[in-house]
């Protein structure tokens, strides 16, 4: 049990915000229909919801977010998931949730079966067409079968710039001339990555991506991966525009959420005020300690 809980703690090679770059498309309230997205299954006592995170999210965390779920992390272990859509309410999300009531994380390849993840939510990079599942409880697999999808009909011959270009993990990003941070924080729209770079990055990605897609029956053309929302993928810079704004706004929302929550928790004032107040308190205590120490030392030497 303990091991599983530890494993559910993410091994953060990827950063949550980075995954958002893949969330260019709005969520679908059903399993994905093709290999162009990741099916997200969330099951709790409130019911089961199956949605599709379109595109290729960088992590399971990103897939959840792009599928429209709101997430809360554990305060002391920000890579661990505590609540999905505010459930469970009872957990304060400060320490690791108990082994009997936590979101267990599962994943499955296209057409496969659920596997308890050995990698954390922020570390797992779901392949397009695969499924990720979250079941609240003591670590049982989701009741819904993972999705089996086929490749969509190719509408364009362009390679998959949307998925390949912003691949955000620091390790892989070293192939791009841009710094990894700027790639992950600011989606392609603002970094204006030249097409050549995207292509090069895509090329280096290809061997990785290929095994995931080739076995699927419909994956006749591995290069074809347009997303429904993308008007045209002929120009990589064009695809960047909407995705940039979308991810920007959603990442803002996520970033703002907890901050707002905290500032309204009644513990007093803005960050600066708290910093000043706490600092003043500690300075007062430290001078009290110094005063008492000095007084006793004087008392002892005068004896």
């Amino acid at each position: 049990m303990l091991l599983r809980r530890l494993l559910s703690l993410a091994a953060a090679t990827a950063v949550g915000a980075a995954a958002l770059t893949g969330a260019a498309a709005p969520a679908q309230a059903a399993a994905c229909s093709s290999t162009s997205g990741v099916t997200v299954v969330v099951q709790s006592s409130n019911g089961t919801s199956v949605r599709c995170a379109s595109g290729d999210p960088g992590s399971a965390w990103g897939a959840l977010q792009s599928a429209g779920f709101s997430l809360t992390a554990v305060q002391r272990f920000p890579d661990a998931l505590c609540r999905i859509d505010g459930f469970p309410k009872s957990d304060p999300c400060v320490n690791m949730p108990p082994a009997s009531a936590y979101w267990s994380f599962w994943h499955a390849p296209n057409g496969g079966s659920w596997t308890y993840s050995q990698i954390g939510i922020k570390g797992w990079d779901p392949k397009p067409g695969s499924s990720v599942g979250f079941r609240f409880g003591s670590g049982t697999a989701p009741g819904t079968q993972p999705a089996t999808v086929s490749a969509p009909k190719p509408t364009t011959a362009a390679p998959r710039p949307t998925t390949a270009a912003p691949k955000p993990t620091p390790r892989r990003a070293t192939t791009a001339p841009n710094t990894p941070r700027s790639t992950t924080q600011a989606p392609s729209g603002r970094t204006t990555a030249p097409p050549a770079t995207s292509g090069a990055a895509g090329a280096t990605r290809a061997p990785n991506a290929a095994p995931g897609t080739t076995p699927t029956p419909g994956a006749a053309s591995p290069t074809a991966s347009p997303t429904p929302s993308t008007p045209s993928s002929a120009s990589p810079s064009a695809t960047g525009e909407p995705s940039a704004s979308a991810s920007e706004s959603s990442s803002d929302a996520v970033a703002a959420g907890p901050t707002d929550g905290r500032s309204s928790d009644g513990s007093g004032g803005s960050g600066t005020a708290r910093l000043l107040g706490g600092g003043a308190l500690l300075a007062g205590l430290a001078s009290a300690v110094a005063f008492v120490g000095l007084r006793r030392r004087q008392a002892q030497t005068s004896v």
Partner: peptide, 23 residues
Amino acid sequence: VRRSDAAALGVPLDPLGVPALPL
């Protein structure tokens, strides 16, 4: 405090912020 406002006992890490001052 832990019962009522557990988050105030920790540091906001993601993103980083000034910790609370639970009186």
